[in-house]
Simulated scan of single mutants.
Amino acid sequence: MSNRLEKAIEKLYVAFHNNTLHPECCKSCAVGNILDNKDSWKHLSDDHGSLQLNYLGKVHQGLGRRFNGYTPQELLQVEASFLAACDYELPFRHNHKKPKNPTDKDLLFKGLCAVISFLCKLDHVPNVMDYTKLFEVENDKPKFALALA
C-alpha cells in the first residue's frame, strides 16, 4: 500500500470515528480530511462535487502539483465519489438533492467505502474494503483464513 493511500485511509478512519466527517464542509469532507482539514482545495474547482478543474486547478494540474500525494483532478474525483455515494446531486448546490441527515453514520460509511475503493483503484491495489473473499467457500470450508491479530 502506498504511503499516500495509507495516510488517507487513516485520516478518514479517524474522522469517521471522531464524528468530524461532514460532506457539506470543505474542511471536514473526504478531501478536507485527507488534506489535514484545510479548505484551500476548494479553489481548484468552481463547484463542490464538480469534476471540472477551474483555471487555478488546471494550472496546478499542469505543473504536476500534488497535495498529500494527490493531483488536483484526483482530489475532485475523490470528493465527487464521496458526495455521490452520500446521495448528493452533483455538483453540490443548496437547491440540489441532498440527504436529510448528512452526518448519518450509515450514509457516511457508504461514502467512505466509495472513496476508499476509488483510492485503491488509483494506486492499483485491491480494495481494502472488499470483504467478499471472507465468504468464499471451497468444499464447504472457508477458502481463505481470517487473520485475527
Rank of each mutant, 00 (worst) to 15 (best):
V14D: 11
F109D: 12
L90Y: 05
K98F: 07
R66I: 08
Y55C: 05
T132K: 08
C86M: 07
K141R: 04
G69H: 11
I34H: 02
T20F: 05
P23F: 11
A84W: 10
D36I: 13
T132W: 07
I9G: 12
M129N: 06
H96E: 15
N19R: 05
K143R: 08
H43F: 15
N33S: 10
E136L: 02
R93N: 12
G69R: 09
D39L: 07
K143E: 00
A85D: 06
P142C: 02
E89N: 13
P91N: 11
K58N: 04
M129V: 06
A114V: 00
N54E: 04
E136Y: 05
K133L: 09
S117C: 12
K11Q: 13
H96N: 12
K7S: 15
V31C: 06
D36K: 09
P102I: 04
D104A: 00
W41A: 00
C29W: 09
L134M: 13
L122A: 01
I116T: 14
L53Y: 05
L90N: 10
W41D: 00
D47I: 10
Q61C: 03
Y55V: 02
Q73I: 02
L119H: 01
S2M: 12
V128Y: 09
Y88G: 06
K105V: 02
L112F: 07
G49W: 07
L146W: 04
E136R: 04
G32L: 14
I34K: 07
K7D: 15
F135T: 01
Y55M: 08
L119V: 01
L63A: 11
L56S: 00
N33W: 06
L122R: 03
E6N: 15
